[in-house]
Design a protein around this nucleic acid. Structure first.
Lengths: 189, 189
DNA sequence: TCAACGCTATTCAACATTGACTACCTCGGT
DNA sequence: ACCGAGGTAGTCAATGTTGAATAGCGTTGA
């Protein structure tokens, strides 16, 4: 699932009014400390730009000679790209993969609050189901002390899913008590 | 870090006496339920075999016409490959990445018990340090309720590291009370 | 008997990722 | 005046990943 970088790139384009260049994306992601909660690398940004362009989700509109340093290629978000953004966003918020889920949360206010809660509850359900699956597998594998220690490994993942689930639960609670301001809400007075 | 698949492949070779073919590796990994605790895919096995061969860590010794189905290429583990296995194994047991750590644990009895405990303690220390780093970053980022919600995302990772750390702590405890049988130990009587 | 399915065993092309490299500019210090 | 560090902006080749495709063989049930 390589869609994290694509979601991030498209999200930055929206935040920047639909028009930017690679380095600005880079700076924005750095400002957001994205390296701490994903494994995206700088090089991938430019690849994503090219790939998204090839797919008609971005359009290269100019090569600006920047005052400082080399010229930059300016891209523009297309309608197709907008659509892709929302597809990826919904996917991300439905996932229980750390990076995916994180990237989704970063842009969650682009959806309606109710929709976000709905998707997160789906993610939670899936995480729990997966956890039960792992726990259910445990009796079918060999002893904990026998290599390759599948039982131990299943527990490692189970614990990880558990941690994700409680974080998500907490986030849903905060969303439901209105701790986050969404565009379509009235501010509390 | 793509080394998980390489460690797994080399590990299967050792378990199979240093000589096997791709499909056997595939079956072994399936038997170990590796898909549940890593994201390795079948296709990657064959790539790893070729790459390791190019690097002199495996040697293609024959193309056997198998009784059922197509012919299989038999590979043999070289001395170079043995060395690589131990490098990757130590790396994996020092990591706090889920897949990496898991793959390391799967083959941990190839090292001495004391060494495994030492490496796991290192991993634990690194995980804790990383967690502190994330927690230390929290005050420097914007409000939890401001996009991209970096604070929330840092907490997600912090929780994840926490879960990994307690699993590792538990494993170390079990290792230290002798719940796992290592080759160089005397069986308890 | 024979079609459909699933197992055996691998290849391949398309796509993604990475890190190193290029190259240009500014600014502060010596 | 010149050097080095660091910011700006991106390319590229090597490497890795994925899913689909290929293709032969055995089994089973209609």
């Amino acid at each position: 699932m390589a869609s994290v970088i694509r979601l991030l790139v498209l999200g930055v384009f929206r935040k920047h009014g639909g028009t930017t260049h690679g380095y600005a994306v880079h700076r924005q992601l750095a400002e957001w400390k994205v390296e701490t909660w994903t494994s995206v690398k700088v090089g991938s940004i430019y690849h994503a730009l090219k790939q998204l362009t090839k797919e008609g989700k971005l359009r290269a509109i100019a090569t600006e000679e920047s005052p400082e340093g080399p010229g930059r290629t300016i891209y523009e978000l297309t309608e197709n790209g907008e659509a892709e953004f929302f597809v990826l966003l919904e996917q991300a918020l439905s996932s229980f993969d750390l990076e995916q889920l994180g990237a989704g949360v970063a842009f969650m206010e682009e959806l309606r609050l109710e929709r976000v809660v709905e998707l997160l509850k789906g993610s939670l359900k899936r995480a729990r189901k997966n956890r039960e699956l792992l726990d259910g597998l445990a009796p079918t594998v060999a002893n904990r002390s026998d290599p390759p220690h599948t039982k131990d490994l299943l527990e490692l993942w189970s614990g990880h899913l558990s941690a994700t689930a409680s974080w998500t639960t907490d986030l849903i609670r905060r969303l439901e008590v209105g701790e986050y301001q969404f565009r379509d809400e009235n501010p509390p007075n």
